[in-house]
Design a protein around this nucleic acid. Structure first.
Length: 453
RNA sequence: GUGGGUAUAGCUCAGGUGGUUAGAGUGUCAGGUUGUGGCCCUGAAGGCCGUGGGUUCGAGUCCCACUACCCACCCCA
């Protein structure tokens, strides 16, 4: 029975039952970004089409055939952002941030990107990306730091052994032309064996031949001259320094001379974190240096590095690896009402707990006691209490622990405080005294926090 | 843009060679226990079988088109 309205191809619903996974991932992203001093930037979802044409590059697939472009009522050509960097650069320049703030300028974002392409596992038309950008330094330490952010996030989220880092350098305007020349000479000699798209790219962008997935092309590319042999002195030194810094930081990597990025703005360092388990889309995170982009978009030439990380892909990997944390706790109390008097008492008790900052629920569908108990169990409530005429008269009720055995009588007037105490004890047992050292600051709620102090 | 596969209940799926009231499991709701969850039992609700054509006396079943989804290419996160 096809519903009247269905979501558009390549879009995704994140339903209430699983939104906590997204919140968890985003929380980790914000935490790690914060540890490295990156601050959030929030930008418009659409920009002028020209920004992307100039920024990402007319020759890229993203710009030439994947953009959601429309004309608004004022006759402007607008485009739903297909990637994050161009918009960040625009905002940084428009607001004069490079002049007004101390360098480096570090920012991060978590936002939707839109690309019109055929959806498949791990690839969507609207996908979410966590990205960071670091402006104003050409030092290799910046490259290493940007990579370290991605590495730390992947480790914290449980993917340390599942995603591997590949790095490369694609040179700068000083050394790239010579390399392109060498590639043309090498591939040109065997042009007949190349696939059609590669034949075309031979002139326009020979770098991309290295990236072709065609078997025949790969076989040829295997022995192609490496960019690394053509790097100018500056680029070679920079790349060597980046590698040394990564090694020093204990971040494992392999140099893969065949990684090239699909966006035109990259220079020097490029990198990808790749993993298996999300279909054919192995790249969870991709990025690199883009020293030419700011100038291209009208700013004073400024070096920059950054990366983008696919949130959907990240979550797929985390689930695949079985590294998701347990689902969040249910309410502290579900107050079951047996009659009208009990209903009023339940409302009061629940309101009191909520005011203290604890999740608590009662039945708002007027169901039977049994159905309310079922609802409480399904929600994962820690405690239930059945309230009716008798309890209201007597002023006390038995609170049932839903997760262990046992019923405890509490006075209704002080039930909220009693439940707080019960939660204290539970927390104490769960975490024990070593908690302080093992748990990162900010991951505990205020109650757990004060228990520790 | 290209190729392959799929489309039946909220979800996962059965429904040889076309035949009359379309099934299971699970989930939902209710009852068995007139005030107590998880196990068990019973019942109910929930389907113009993706959409539109065609073949046929008759189509969930065969044919065509469309659409969507899945997988892959391309590209990218």
């Amino acid at each position: 029975m096809a519903p009247k309205f269905q979501k558009l191809p390549g879009t995704l619903d994140v339903l209430p039952a699983e939104s906590w996974k997204w919140q968890y991932a985003e929380e980790q992203m914000r935490t790690v970004a914060g540890l490295f001093g990156y601050r959030e930037i929030r930008l418009p979802t659409f920009e002028s089409t020209e920004l992307y044409q100039r920024g990402v590059g007319e020759g890229t697939d993203v710009v030439s055939k994947e953009m959601y472009t429309f004309e608004d009522k004022g006759g402007r050509s607008c485009t739903l952002r297909p990637e994050g960097t161009a918009g960040v650069v625009r905002a940084v320049l428009e607001n004069g941030l490079l002049a007004a703030s101390p360098l480096p300028l570090k920012s991060y974002y978590i936002e939707s990107h839109f690309r019109y392409e055929r959806a498949q596992k791990g690839r969507y038309r609207e996908h979410h990306q966590f990205g960071i950008e670091c402006f104003g330094t050409h030092a290799p330490e910046a490259d290493a730091e940007v990579i370290a952010v991605a590495d730390m996030l992947l480790r914290r989220i449980g993917l340390g052994e599942y995603a591997s880092l590949e790095v490369n350098s694609i040179g700068c305007p000083a050394c790239r032309p010579a390399y392109n020349q060498a590639l043309r000479a090498y591939f040109g000699a065997r042009e007949g064996e190349l696939c059609d798209t590669c034949k075309g790219r031979l002139q326009t962008n020979p770098l991309r031949l290295l990236d072709c997935k065609e078997e025949a092309c790969q076989a040829i590319a295997k022995d192609a001259p490496s960019m690394l042999e053509y790097l100018c002195e500056d680029c070679a030194g920079h790349f060597a320094a980046v590698q040394a810094l990564l090694a020093e930081a204990g971040i494992a990597f392999v140099v893969n001379p065949r990684i090239v990025r699909g966006l035109d703005y990259y220079t020097n360092t490029v990198f990808e974190f790749v993993a298996s388990g999300i279909g054919a889309q192995g790249t969870v995170c991709g990025g690199g240096r883009y020293d030419g982009l700011i100038g291209e978009l009208g700013g004073a030439p400024t070096p920059a590095v950054g990366f983008g990380m696919g949130v959907e892909r990240l979550l797929m990997l985390v689930e695949e690896a079985g590294k998701l944390p347990p689902a969040p706790d249910g309410p502290l109390l579900y107050a079951v009402a047996a009659d009208e008097a009990g209903r009023a008492a339940a409302r009061k008790l629940v309101a009191g707990l909520r005011a203290k900052g604890y999740a608590a629920e009662y039945d708002i569908v007027q169901r039977s006691v049994k159905a309310q108990m079922k609802a409480a169990a399904r929600l994962g409530a820690h405690f239930t209490v059945v309230l009716g005429e008798a309890e209201v008269q007597g002023g006390s009720a038995k609170f049932k622990n839903m997760q262990e055995e046992g019923e405890v009588p509490f006075l209704l007037d002080s039930a909220a405080e009693a439940l707080e105490m019960a939660l204290f004890r539970k927390t104490a047992r769960q975490f024990g005294g070593r908690l302080k050292r093992e748990v990162a600051p900010g991951t505990l709620d205020p109650l757990q926090q004060c228990f520790l102090e």
